[in-house]
């Protein structure tokens, strides 16, 4: 991978960040009334509102307000939570690792589910095995995440008591155990998204000339599978994972609410009901930055796996 490609891709992220800041800045300006009273909540007196307006620069013209907002952001200041009275950045630092753990865990489970089944469906294409796998995941696509989460929670958590019904647990083992059901919920959803595209990608490779050639020169089918087919399946998986990271984060917001997991997704929902606009604003920004970083990493990994990308 050439350094210029990496550099070019890194530079592209700067205008994205600026634009994200503009959108998040404008978001709170959509509020009816003025942001100061919204940020302070219902109990604020007119004097406090006036003071906060001056402190936040809300008495200045909009472009100046934006520059002040951007300056604070660049210093890592995301404002203060109006309900919890702590810096938003600290809340994010505490809770983001939980959500990251959950989404990575879910992605791993999703890939473990989707890749072998997609290979199986492609190899046995147009048989009942293929139909069954595709049928299950077709229904899986239509199952609401919160509904699957509730079913797992009831059956495997409450009735059979195989898994805890919420929380985050202690230590790596505790996290893996406590987050298994939420991660499985999300992973199943992700697998349903991945499966169809992955199956057709593998089918395409299976019928490609170089695979025919590998077979005809007498390579064992297991070798052809691992060296040629799976390598290409991996490229598709990485791309698909990257493209669907937004869906994964959206799913995490819902799953965390159902399973009472102390991550940023649950924080977001709590913030909405607490009308905690600094937290909503900060989290929206963090999520967008996270997604654009994942897009960046996906592109770089993709370029590493598939040398044609750089020249496209």
């Amino acid at each position: 991978m050439r350094a210029t490609y990496v550099l070019k891709r890194l530079l592209q992220i700067i205008p994205t960040f600026i634009a994200v800041m503009v959108i998040v800045f404008l978001l709170v300006r959509l509020l009816p009334g003025d942001p100061a009273s919204a940020i302070l909540g219902d109990r604020a007196t007119p004097e406090i509102i006036e003071r906060t307006k001056r402190e936040l620069g809300l008495d200045r013209p909009i472009p100046v307000q934006f520059l002040l907002f951007a300056e604070r952001l660049l210093h890592g200041d995301l404002g203060e939570s109006s309900s919890l009275k702590v810096p938003v950045l600290r809340l994010v630092a505490e809770r983001l690792p939980v959500t990251l753990f959950l989404t990575v865990y879910a992605a791993v489970l999703g890939v473990i589910l989707a890749v072998p089944l997609a290979v199986l469906a492609a190899v046995r294409r147009n048989t009942w095995v293929d139909s069954l796998i595709r049928g299950i995941f077709q229904v899986g696509l239509s199952l609401p995440v919160f509904y699957v989460a509730l079913q797992f929670l009831t059956l495997l958590g409450a009735k059979l008591a195989w898994f805890p019904i919420g929380g985050y647990g202690e230590g790596l083992g505790g996290h893996l155990y406590h987050l298994f059901l939420p991660a499985l919920t999300l992973g199943f959803n992700l697998a349903a998204i991945l499966l169809r595209t992955l199956r057709s990608a593998i089918l395409e490779v299976l019928t490609a000339e170089y695979v025919e050639f590998a077979r005809s020169k007498g390579l064992k089918s297991a070798v052809v599978m691992s060296r040629h087919v799976l390598r290409n399946a991996m490229i598709s998986t990485v791309t698909l994972l990257g493209l669907n990271v937004g869906a994964l984060i959206g799913g995490a917001v819902i799953t965390e609410s159902v399973f009472a997991i102390p991550g940023v997704g649950r924080l977001m929902i709590d913030a909405i009901f607490g009308r905690d606009y600094p937290v909503i604003q900060g989290l929206t920004l963090v999520f967008a930055v996270l997604v654009s970083l994942v897009f960046l990493v996906t592109d770089l990994v993709h370029a590493r796996l598939d040398p044609r990308v750089e020249h496209a």
Partner: peptide, 25 residues
């Protein structure tokens, strides 16, 4: 095209939730 690129940087559900949060449920 630039506007579209920008919208997809936000997770769909998160952006919708954020807008609903501001406008009211």
């Amino acid at each position: 095209g630039r506007v579209a690129d920008l919208v997809v940087v936000f997770p769909f559900l998160v952006l919708v939730i954020a807008i609903v949060a501001v406008l009211g449920p």
